[in-house]
Design a protein around this nucleic acid. Sequence first.
DNA 1: CTGAAAGCGCTAACAA
DNA 2: TTGTTAGCGCTTTCAG
Lengths: 364, 364
Amino acid sequence: MTRVVGRGGSPSVPRSADVARLAGVSRKTVSRVLNNEPYVSADVRRRVIEAAEELGYRLNNAARALASGRTRSIGAVALGTAGYGTASLLVAIEKVVRGSGYALRVVNTLDGEPDDIAGAVDSLLEQGVDGIIVSEPIVEGEVSVRVDVPVLFLGAPPAFGGSRAVTAGVGADLLAGAATDHLLDLGHQTVHHLAGPLRWYAARDRVEGWRTALTARGRHQPPLLEGDWSAASGYLAGRELAADSEVTAVFVSGDDMAIGLIHALTEAGRRVPHDVSVIGFDGNPVFAYVTPPLTTVRQPFDAAAREGLKLLIHTIEEPGTEVPSASDLPVELVVRASTAPPRSSSAGQRTSPSRSHPSQRSQA
Amino acid sequence: MTRVVGRGGSPSVPRSADVARLAGVSRKTVSRVLNNEPYVSADVRRRVIEAAEELGYRLNNAARALASGRTRSIGAVALGTAGYGTASLLVAIEKVVRGSGYALRVVNTLDGEPDDIAGAVDSLLEQGVDGIIVSEPIVEGEVSVRVDVPVLFLGAPPAFGGSRAVTAGVGADLLAGAATDHLLDLGHQTVHHLAGPLRWYAARDRVEGWRTALTARGRHQPPLLEGDWSAASGYLAGRELAADSEVTAVFVSGDDMAIGLIHALTEAGRRVPHDVSVIGFDGNPVFAYVTPPLTTVRQPFDAAAREGLKLLIHTIEEPGTEVPSASDLPVELVVRASTAPPRSSSAGQRTSPSRSHPSQRSQA
DNA sequence: CTGAAAGCGCTAACAA
DNA sequence: TTGTTAGCGCTTTCAG
């Protein structure tokens, strides 16, 4: 079969040989230019680039991957839910991945079950990726997959992947501690906690931070409530809490749950923040406009993605060498109006935040 | 260079030849089985599958793509914002894409500018995709890229891509009409509209639906307000609207904006829904738990993704043949408590919805 | 129903 | 600084 290139017949897609011919160099040289390799004279480089442009040449990634053994893409296993947190994290990941010269492949899992994760990782591996990001997997069970690429666990200890696994997080424990401290600083005797599903590492880390903050001040540690991240589950928990007049402050492990919880409290006649203070977790900006505006703690998704990918890409590109050290993630408390000093107390170190609309931020 | 496979030395990754050897067949037969091609005896098929499993064989997608010219992956150009709508759509897309045997590649654009889109499409093409999904691009400008694969425009007329472009939407005009009708049915004389940025097709379609509904009943058409999807912009618009005592009903082009708008209204002493009714757009479930619970219209993301991908995949796999006809998308009105009959009217055809928490749904 | 040979378009190693 | 020679691992002809 003869293939007519460049004229007549079907206007077939140009390959590197066509570029080489037009630029008057070898295919290897074209390859060098396209990969930004050194040892190419400026003149040749320019000619190649011009030729490529003239032909509308686009590199064939499959061929490149096959020949080089590297796909230049990274796979992400994400939670298939459309929550603000999940979505923000994925957007942050995409930005950093693309900025690093990799392409992103995404696979969602229904709810992070080990089998799901294993399946997701497997499909990523089959598609061909140089590295994998697993974000926020759950605790239980064991993920059994044979991975031969580095894996980054975002917000969780390595669940599999042996030697080439790295970890990074959003600093959930610190954030949770800051939230709890905020309430304590306001003068509350103790702080209740509505956690996310405890099978999630994210939920556990926050519980941990809450416990630590309480313990550090020698406060009584109330029983834990567990929700499922949804506003509906927050509502249910709120009904329970409303019945207990001891409750004056609640740290909720997610903004949506906090909204549900506040709704139940209000419905039961417990006013927020007058009777009960509530602080959320995530930082969805829309909740600056509900009544009362929600005090919350913002998750540093961008910073976490940047940190994590630095590690992952290092592990991919320079295996064996020391991994770069992690920098500190920002802890950003967004104080709005759902938190205030307890009713019968004047202990608040700060003036009670009671403005009704925008948000004051403070670095903790 | 001799390569030791299967034992000794480095435990190299198995290839199809290893599977073939173990199963006692040719490589081509292995390929047949893996691709579910016909004309393979059940016995051989079983043997191949067993051999593959025993070896832990994983097909090399780069090689497959290079040889076959098909990558079996689809690229999505998404809006790089973490809003509920955007995120839901992407999750829906991922589900359908994966369910169809394709892998998903994602590229975000900052805000849908033509140049961004062109760049995103280009990078997708370079990575190798069999089809592209562009979701919710904006109106202005022209996208100039040479695409040689089918393109699906979700919620917008084809912006480029010539002959192999297909379109599908969420039925934004119908949804907007239903929202407007709901308010009219309640007895309001007319309905104001806070739109999204008019450079977005999504925003325009909703304006269109609102206009049509108003015109159909010969109602006066108030001036249009324009926001940017954010709650903050809704708040600003709400301040304006609060000053106008004629306003009794507002259809807002997004839930977040609706929340901001309600906040401004309430702040100005106009009660919702007592003085002003507000209906949102999207269907984020968390807003069932704010005060007042937000009436809204749910976008059929799953159905839209399913419809659109049916078209796209058809165009990829059976070019030339007739495209399957589109089925109707559901219009789902979620009536909660932010809408009610106007104060001085008893025209509401239905009992005024004033329950305070969950959501009643109705098919319109 | 199964197999043998010939590439897909690129990069790696080596040479010049 | 550049070119030559071999493949990467699979699918595609085309024969059996």
